[in-house]
Design a protein around this nucleic acid. Sequence first.
DNA 1: CTCTGGACATGATGATCATCATAACATACA
DNA 2: TGTATGTTATGATGATCATCATGTCCAGAG
Lengths: 248, 248
Amino acid sequence: MSVENFLTTAKKPELKSDKETCTSPLFSELKPAEHAEFLATAQRFHREKGELIYREGMPAEGIYLICSGKVKLVGQTPDRRKTYILEILGPGELLGEEAFFANIEYNVDARAMEATELCFFERADFLSLLHRHHSVTLKILEKLSREIKALQMALVEIVYEGAEGRLARALLKLGRKYGIREGQSRVIDLGLSRIELAEFLGLRPETTSRILSRWRAQGILMVQGRRLIILDEDCLVKFARPPRKWAS
Amino acid sequence: MSVENFLTTAKKPELKSDKETCTSPLFSELKPAEHAEFLATAQRFHREKGELIYREGMPAEGIYLICSGKVKLVGQTPDRRKTYILEILGPGELLGEEAFFANIEYNVDARAMEATELCFFERADFLSLLHRHHSVTLKILEKLSREIKALQMALVEIVYEGAEGRLARALLKLGRKYGIREGQSRVIDLGLSRIELAEFLGLRPETTSRILSRWRAQGILMVQGRRLIILDEDCLVKFARPPRKWAS
DNA sequence: CTCTGGACATGATGATCATCATAACATACA
DNA sequence: TGTATGTTATGATGATCATCATGTCCAGAG
């Protein structure tokens, strides 16, 4: 077998994805049989990087569970001139719950940030699950509550924190959720462009770029294109709460 | 202890309050008997203007329902240097749900803005209600979802809006929820000081005051102390979405 | 190899809003 | 009535960040 042949065949065999387990802490109290029965009602599908999962304005006819990959929730101002990345979701997280439970249209777009596997549950199937398994319902109530708390905090922080605070907080959050420890440092490699990072922060790309440059010069982090390596996490923690007066 | 104190020094024994109806759309599908049985598990409370209902950091051992009056959710930045009003709640609304369902500590204070009647439900009692009446659970899921949607929209808009946009949006919201129509105009009389209004907007009181003065001069609203009268609601709608460039 | 388009970096300028300061005004209280 | 206290209004100044403009680097296409 030629080298070329080996490399091309090595990339391809990706057909077992429908055998992968797909679960979430939300279902932790289901018995294996119940869990399997529930999963059997799902439609599985796949989205490549950049592809849309749902669009603002579509009615929510079901609910999604992310099996693998990452998804960004993208909101726009009504005039469509500004974009804001509300959240970055990963495996095991529900997608589209707000619109599903309120039985309304999605108010943001959901877009795959990389190759992503999803389960889709029809409204009736998912509601039936909730009806039969109160533990799942309670867990979802808990999750929604935490989400509300997180959004409330985000609102407060955005209003009262400056650009450095927002960036520091975002990097810490992304680092904890998606970062990879490497000795003292932590690697964040989500393939976020400067523009996307800025949209996640509610800043302009120029501002984001400037702060990254400054922090790079101060040895707080390393910037390798879209790969960010946090060297001094403690320092970021300090930046995350500036009394808005004397940063240095 | 402050409760004891308050009860013993009770200025007026308002005993008829426990006869008042106290309900919410959340319970609309309960039969009257079920509703009454459920309400019987409540402890009723009264709070005078300015009195605390719960404090940030307290564990959420139950859930509140506002029977009458208004309650503000007040948070502080971790350094205690800034205060913000997250929400103003009125009759029929639940209070403390996020912390209750997540079973965590309250992350903000709740304080009565005027004489307020409340029902308090112990954790076990409320969970029992949810268990027995799935319709209530679904309604709460729906309510939490709508709240998430509202917070998401607020985030997107607030990030990119200036001071005028925020004030316009806040006045429209307060006007719709608590305002009183008087012919063409709408009266907002919540007794909010400039400082409180600024805390609700995430602005400084000076900025708030300036914008109000400008709008008063332009005939968009009337300012009678803490009483605000919106004269030109359409104009506020325009201010609520400035492309951040050409306001006039 | 050169050309070109896109992502990123960085300088210059201006708008916005926080901050500091002061004044007008009302209210409560002795 | 005068004094103190708190609320609101408004002017002056500065810090921050968006905006505009330019330059660099790199990858892909001709």
